[in-house]
Nucleic acid binder design. Sequence first.
DNA 1: TTGCCCATGTAATTTGTTACATGATTTA
DNA 2: TAAATCATGTAACAAATTACATGGGCAA
Lengths: 216, 216
Amino acid sequence: MTSSHIAKKQDLPPTAWAVLGLLSFPGERTGYELKKWADSSLRFFYWSPAISQIYAELRRLEELGYASSARSGPEELRTKRRYAITAAGREALAAWAADTAEAGPPVLKHGLLLRIWLGHLSEPERLRTLVVEHLEHTRGHTRGELAAVREAMAHAAGVPEWAFPALALRWAERRHLAELELAEALLEDLAEAARRERARPEGAERQAGGDAPTPG
Amino acid sequence: MTSSHIAKKQDLPPTAWAVLGLLSFPGERTGYELKKWADSSLRFFYWSPAISQIYAELRRLEELGYASSARSGPEELRTKRRYAITAAGREALAAWAADTAEAGPPVLKHGLLLRIWLGHLSEPERLRTLVVEHLEHTRGHTRGELAAVREAMAHAAGVPEWAFPALALRWAERRHLAELELAEALLEDLAEAARRERARPEGAERQAGGDAPTPG
DNA sequence: TTGCCCATGTAATTTGTTACATGATTTA
DNA sequence: TAAATCATGTAACAAATTACATGGGCAA
């Protein structure tokens, strides 16, 4: 590292900051533990990287001096390697967290909505099924996952360290409810559109109208 | 069709399907047009690829026989190239759209929430500011963008082709409102947490409690 | 005549995933 | 003792972005 490489601070990929963020909580952890933890926290509002990438980011963070690690056994064996955040790492992370411009607007990738948008390709009945399945999955699986996190969180109730993760969890739970309401409203809109379609003059079903001017 | 060649079900990246989806609406379009259109539609519930990637996907789709293109001028000049979906493309896209398993749960990447989760790194005041800025941006900028799309959409009111994009837009608008409510509730939770913090016994502010058992 | 929007593309790079290889420790 | 889970890593690849190169048409 020569002077030409001087500290281009603060432009690490989101994953690096997320991993460093996990390390910013008290205690030392292995990459494996970090992955499991990310799966039950970050995943609900950010995202959980592959385990191989977590190891890669940990190596990078250590190179940057943002994290330090210690093996639990002799070097030759592939023993546990526990990571901890350094003072420099904590400082860099705090600077990043305070940067509002960096955050940008939230990004959503919703496969169901893309399919709705492309509704002209599917049977109306199939479309309805897609939404219903999404509703069921959200009401069942997703809800269960959040409940499990909520329960694990109860242990740490009142511990100031976990106040903010608790806040984020609450947000995720409310978001979960909003997602359900959104899907229910969509289902109604779909039904209404189907009603309107049936009421339309005969013989005019889904032909292409030549060149359309592509609205949103 | 021997069993060794079973179905080889086209598994293309999401971007390819999204681009093909844009092409599935009547009319032929250039890559440039597709990009602008994606920015004002897909972006609100899926995502809008870089222009260079759109060109790359268009090439791939043409190779696969899912799209065809025609130049508007002589080959040597870099003239406009307009793309259209083929019958095979339409069929493949419809199959993909009907595949519920493929969709998976929606993915969210919310920078603000990551920062809230890491709230122990920031001054409470700064944290509040972050949420307020998000609220303002959502109420102003994001809202304006949706309104613009809504207006453009009004042109095509009643045209059956655009019924589903209109449905998706409605979903995006409702989601926008939910996002605002979520942020407002978060602001309240933040204020409440600050009140509780002030009420706590003195001398116990934000020290690390040794090893904590990492709840969610 | 400068600058912006239209329009297409290449190259370099980064980011992230899946598949694979390896072995220790715990639990049924 | 077989299995699942813990644990670390490499290799190959795919996905996606940014930066760059090029040039036409149009409007202030």
